[in-house]
């Protein structure tokens, strides 16, 4: 099933919450979605007969300048098709609903996106840092990040 078919079916169900469908080579086609209804959309994608996206390949945080984004790559073991979902939130208040109860692999991916990008996932049971030390300050993968001079007395740079 191609991404435009998935887009049409989702549009009939969720209406305005599905924002956009982009398909230009060499871009992988993706569907831009409003973050408010993200949990229900992902639930439909996992459980509906035609979709059955039961495998979350990857969840990445992105720094888009004034906004922060999250990209979901999904795959279906039965139908063997893929889809790419994107959401974007403002940088001052980056809150995205968590999908860890739908796909358990999202648990650590969301902790990593929080640690390195600073995106808050609402509904996550344990959103703490995973790669950087627990008392690290700042979110390193943002474009405007400045590394600290010293950490616990050790020179950083």
């Amino acid at each position: 099933m191609g991404t435009n078919d998935i887009f049409d079916i989702l549009k009939t169900e969720f209406g305005d919450y599905i924002l956009e469908y982009k398909d230009q080579q060499p871009v992988d086609p993706y569907i831009l979605v409003n973050p408010d209804q993200l949990f229900d959309i992902c639930h439909t994608l996992r459980d509906k007969e035609e979709f059955q996206f039961d495998y979350l390949m990857s969840l990445s945080g992105m720094d888009l300048g004034e906004k922060l984004g999250v990209v979901y790559h999904l795959y279906s073991m039965n139908h063997k098709h893929k889809v790419v979902l994107k959401v974007s939130v403002p940088k001052e208040d980056p809150k995205v609903p968590s999908v860890e109860r739908i796909w358990r692999s999202a648990d650590w991916h969301e902790r990593e996106a929080y640690d390195l990008m600073g995106i808050h996932f609402e509904g996550h049971h344990n959103l703490i840092r995973i790669l950087c030390p627990y008392d690290w300050e700042g979110h390193p993968l943002r474009k405007d990040y400045q590394a600290p001079e010293f950490y616990h007395g050790m020179e950083v740079s």
Binding site: C132, P140, Y145, A147, M154, E155, V156, S157
Partner: peptide, 11 residues
């Protein structure tokens, strides 16, 4: 590298 110690002889 923001998380790498530049040489173990610093500690």
């Amino acid at each position: 590298g923001y998380h790498v110690l530049k040489g173990v002889d610093k500690i």
